[in-house]
Amino acid sequence: MSDLLAHVPHTRLVPEGHYGPAGTPGVSARQVLGLAAATLAAPRGKTAALIASFADAGLPLVDAPKAMSNGVLTAVGTGPGRWLITAEGMTGAALLAHLRAIAGPDAALTDQSDANIILEVSGAAARATLAKGIAVDLDPLAFAHGDAATTVVSHIGVTFWQSEEAPAYRFVVARSFAPAFLRWLTVSAAEFGFALTGTGRG
C-alpha cells in the first residue's frame, strides 16, 4: 500500500476528497445514501410466477445477472430466482411491505438496507480502475449498460451493475468490508485522479 492511505485507519471509510494527480479526475465515486435494499427469492418452483407478478406491477424481473429499473425500484439478479432490490426514498420496512404486496406471501423477503453500502463509480478511467480487481470482462462488447455481476474484488464479495452508458457502475459492498473496498478502489484509481464523495471526513 502506498503512503496515499497511510493516515487512514483500516476500520474507517476512506474520507471524501481528491486522490492522485491534481486536475480533472479520471474516476469518481460517491456513496449513494438513502437507499433501501432487500433480497427477494422465489419459492421453490415458482420463479416464473414471481416474475409474472412483478411484470404486472411494472418491474420486469429477468432471471439473469441483469439490472432492471422502473424508476423507483432497481432489481439486480444475483442468482437463479434471486434478486437484490434497491429503492430510493423508502425505508427498509416500506420496501419490504411494497414487495410483499407484489410477491405474495410465499416469496422470501429480507431487509438488507443496513447490510451494505452502495457506491457509484464513474469516469473515463472507471474501466481501467475496475480492471485492477475485477476478473470479469467489462469491455462494452462483453458487459453493457444493464449487465450485473456478483463477484469478488480484492478478497471482498461485491454485486455491481453498469447503471449508465457513460459508464457508471453501482457497487453493493457489505458494510464491514466497505473500508477495505474503498482502500482498494482509492489506490487503484489514484493514478487517474480520483474524486471520492459521500464518505464523510474520516
Binding site: M1, H10, T11, S154, H155, I156, F177, P179, A180, R183
Partner: peptide
C-alpha cells in the same frame, strides 16, 4: 497492494 495491514481486509464491527 496486499501488504502489511492490507494483506487481507479488516472488518470493523
Amino acid at each position: 497492494h496486499h501488504r502489511e495491514k492490507d494483506f487481507r481486509p479488516t472488518r470493523p464491527t
